[in-house]
Design a protein around this nucleic acid. Structure first.
Lengths: 358, 358
DNA sequence: TTGTATGCGTTATCAA
DNA sequence: TTGATAACGCATACAA
């Protein structure tokens, strides 16, 4: 055959999928080539890159030079196959464009990137089924760890998962090996909001709760109840309406409150989006915030600074949640013990809440 | 040694990194095992899974059964190394929690997932340097294609990239092999907003522009100018202020407009966030929207339905942009010719714009 | 139509 | 401290 008659192997016309790929990949340098250029074995190069073993300074330098000269970048795919580490972390969020959790994604991204890891963001859509599918996919992709931002997955499923790979879960408190949990203090946050309104002289304070299926929602409701109770006020159940954490729900809940005919001078909405809806409902009825009605939200989303009037809200350290989650998963992977501390929620007073008239 | 005295190899205590990994991985089934169980060769299993060749129905069935029984899931990492396809798409967004591009991410995620692909979301932070780093990282991870959502990367760099792997880029119009570009009609959108205000009888219409370094910003400004010109109005340059696409910028720009002393009865802000800021500035001066001033935004972000008053805005098909981008990259990968059609922007009239008083 | 052999680029193991 | 060699799990070229 022609190719055997030629002693020096010269580049032939590419053919087949393999060749096509090689051509497209262009000048991709391999560890092997680095080794040759530096005059050492591939293993030595690998050891230097990973700091796996002690290597003579001279070789270290030679390899560093070769890497520099060739512009070598290790192939994470090959690394994943050979070493079992993909340097990627699965992040199960619920909605990729959530105005609230967005900050957490940013925090995660920042911390992971600095550590040389990449996040794989996927959406569970607040359904156990989608979450399970996402997790399965992430495991198939051999992520080195998993961050679960809230969600519907059961505690026992999370624990089972943690036996397979490092897991960080938010929105609940869970203890298990290989697992770290991180949660906002929703109870305290809701108390803060209610106490703020109480301090302004309000006694009849309505509550627009979130989706009752969401664990947070119940805790926030509890916070409202307990702050009221501490002030010696029995909550009027007619002043509790659910808004399912969305604007439209907040609007409807506000309408129901108004239609109920019960007197009240302030409303605490369990998230800012519902507060926006409530504000619109009030506006439609010709009621002004805060002159006729005080309004407080929860989460302190970015735009709440610019609503009319700017919304008083409870700030959650959401970017910090992201950063801590990422740090925790890195700790877990490295075999360190993560320290799960989150700063306390904070009442941000703006212009939507004022002293009770009269 | 004890373990050698035993003829039958029984499971020994795991030792070494490899063993530890195998233990942690648990019951991970390989293609090899499927082949054995089905009584065929590994290549046949591979061919059936990938539909690479015609296989006898009997074997097909046997393999399907074996996959089902064993719960086999192909290892994407190994696939990536062997086949050069990782079934992952790099997505360079600018800010992971952008209220505007969030919809695009959702669209991308939806379409890719249905096709068995996974998006890798990374943030370029509107800086060429970060974008370059992100792209390098994604290429190192051997993504099968790249979606670039706007950004600062130069046209020629995009074209160079497209020679290496399939690329979809948004926010500009670019023709090159292996490349597909997709852009909103910002000019038409800005015209729509301005024409809407003109139709309401406004003649002196101010414009709050975005970051001048952003290409979109200039186009939207052009739209304002051209609609004005078409109505026979020469734009007053004092009525043009920049707000850098953020709330605070919109607020400041509005203040400058008010302080200028020039008369105007309407404001068109180049995005909704700046419109929010502008609305707050007006509120602080005791001016009501739309009674004293009409206000129109751009992008029609979700919350604009619930601002006070609900904001008139130009809707961009942003989820569609995401979906189309994903479809285009899949087309490019499959060697099909993508059809880059985006529906036109739409003026959404709400309550922040009204007929000019007097 | 199917099986065998080889290679993808790296890390892990073992022996030196 | 270093190098040779064998995985990692799959897809592909080639032979049959």
């Amino acid at each position: 055959m022609a190719r055997d008659s030629d002693a020096t192997p010269r580049p032939r016309a590419p053919q087949g999928a393999r060749a096509a790929r090689a051509a497209r990949a262009g000048g991709v340098v391999t560890l092997q080539q680095v080794a040759e250029r530096a005059g050492v074995s591939p293993s030595t190069v690998s050891r230097i890159i990973n700091g796996t073993a002690i290597v003579a300074d001279a070789k270290k330098q030679a390899v560093a030079d070769a890497i520099e000269a060739l512009g070598f970048v290790p192939n994470p795919v090959a690394r994943g196959l050979a070493g079992g580490r993909t340097l990627s972390i699965g992040v199960v969020t619920q909605v990729i464009d959530s105005p609230f959790y967005g900050g957490a994604l940013r925090g995660i991204e920042d911390v992971l990137q600095l550590a040389g890891y990449s996040p794989l963001f996927v959406s569970g859509h607040w359904t156990a089924g989608d979450e399970a599918r996402c997790i399965e996919m992430l495991r198939a992709r051999r992520v080195d760890g998993l961050i679960l931002l809230d969600g519907r997955i059961t505690d026992s499923a999370v624990k089972a998962l943690a036996r397979q790979l490092p897991v960080v879960v938010t929105g609940r408190t869970l203890k298990a090996p290989g697992l770290c949990s991180l949660a906002f203090d929703n109870l305290q946050g809701a108390r803060l909001a209610t106490e703020h309104l109480l301090a302004l002289g309000h006694r009849r304070i309505a509550f627009i709760g979130g989706d009752p299926e969401h664990p947070d929602a119940m805790v926030r409701e509890q916070g409202w109840r307990s702050a009221l109770a501490a002030a010696g006020i029995a909550p009027d159940e007619a002043l509790l309406q659910h808004g399912h954490y969305i604007e439209e729900g907040g609007l409807r809940a506000m309408e129901r409150l108004l239609d109920s005919g019960r007197p009240f001078s302030a409303v605490f909405a369990a998230n800012d989006q519902m507060a926006y809806g409530a504000a619109l409902a009030l506006h439609r009825r010709g009621l002004q915030v805060p002159q006729h009605m005080s309004l407080v939200g929860f989460d302190d989303v970015t735009t709440s600074q610019y609503t009319l009037p700017p919304l008083s809200s409870v700030r959650q350290p959401v970017v910090e949640l992201g950063r801590r989650s990422a740090e925790a998963i890195l700790d877990l992977i490295a075999g360190r013990k993560p320290t799960a501390e989150l700063s306390a929620p904070e009442m941000v007073v703006r212009e939507s809440s004022a002293a009770r008239a009269g």
